[in-house]
C-alpha cells in the first residue's frame, strides 16, 4: 500500500490511510428472488482486472469517506479515469 491515493475530500494522501473496499460491482441487487449463484457472483466473484480497474476505497484514518477511484493493478498506482468514464 505504498501508493498515493486521492481522497475526494482531503486530496492526495498516503495509501496507508485508506482501506480497500473491493471492485466496483454496482449497487446491491434486489435480494428477494436472487439465486445463491447470483448472490455469490455479486459478493465474492471478482474480475481481478490486469490493468486499470475501478474500485472502492475508504479514507479510514482520515475523513471516513467511501469513494471510487481507478488503479492500474500492474504497477499499483492510481491513474486518471479512462476517457469513456471521465
Amino acid at each position: 500500500m505504498a501508493l498515493m491515493i486521492t481522497c475526494p475530500v482531503c486530496g492526495p494522501r498516503n495509501g496507508y490511510e485508506f482501506r480497500y473496499g473491493g471492485e466496483d460491482k454496482g449497487p446491491r441487487p434486489a435480494q428477494r428472488e436472487l439465486s445463491p449463484g447470483d448472490w455469490f457472483q455479486y459478493v465474492h466473484a471478482n474480475d481481478c482486472a490486469d490493468g486499470i480497474q475501478k474500485e472502492w476505497w475508504v479514507h479510514r484514518d482520515g475523513c471516513g469517506v467511501w469513494f471510487t477511484t481507478y488503479r492500474d493493478t500492474t504497477v499499483n498506482r492510481e491513474v486518471p479515469p479512462p476517457e469513456e468514464d471521465a
Binding site: 482501506r19 473496499g21 454496482g26 446491491r28 472502492w56 479510514r60 471516513g64 469517506v65 467511501w66
Partner: peptide
C-alpha cells in the same frame, strides 16, 4: 461500525 454503515449504503 461507521465504516460498515457507510460501505453498505455507499450506492444509495
Amino acid at each position: 461500525t461507521i465504516e460498515w454503515f457507510r460501505y453498505h449504503t455507499r450506492y444509495d
